[in-house]
Amino acid sequence: MQEQPIINIKKLTKSFGKNNVLRGIDLTVNKGNNLVILGRSGSGKSVTIKCVVGLLKVDKGIIDVFGTDVTKLNYKELNKIRLRIGFLFQNGALYDSMSVRDNLAFTLKHHTKDLPKEEVEKQIIEALENVGLEEAIDKMPSQLSGGMIKRIGLARTLIIKPEIILYDEPTAGLDTITGKEISELILSVQEKYKTTSIVITHDIICAKMTANRIIIIKDGLIHVQGSFEELKNSSDEWVRSFFEYE
């Protein structure tokens, strides 16, 4: 079966002042696949996915998502695309003045004003069940652990039923066991909702568990790409160094 590209990035460049972070990235993510992006800190991994969702304005290049170049869209058009994309932030980015229930209801109510209260509650429960945290529904973000925050962040992402999910370091700051649980969650979400994902990570276990394909960014360009095993056994010593502590 021919694979259908959902995200197609061509010659993406992005600078911050004199710092050329991305210098012509080309990448494609096919429908239903998980792409993992590795690279050293500051190599532009997070910048790439922030450009995809329009949080950062690109300098040059094309970011084709669902067949539309998002760099050319106005705010309203971009928001329509954003509703089909979920973004899990590194720190969860839960609204700390709202309970877990309100965090999840916020986006849903904002975009579906006619949705009955019972339906909103049902969808909140379903999203929390997906991440195994139904009991946290009335808690405030300050009462949650790091792992729980990531899970609730994912539940908030899932509630809008995205077709693409962008994970920005989903296991950062978590212990190995919780990190593995989050990686398993990424896989179960992909299996259940047939989502397409880009996972930014430094965690090799997460990369191994979730990746269909891995790319490594170096000096603002894609240095190498392939499967986990291919890159682990690469002839390039620098590439192999990422997999040393696996």
Partner: peptide
């Protein structure tokens, strides 16, 4: 803490 970005990506 990226909460404004979280709103932005949720099309709010």
């Amino acid at each position: 803490t990226s909460q404004l970005d979280a709103m932005e990506v949720s099309a709010i």
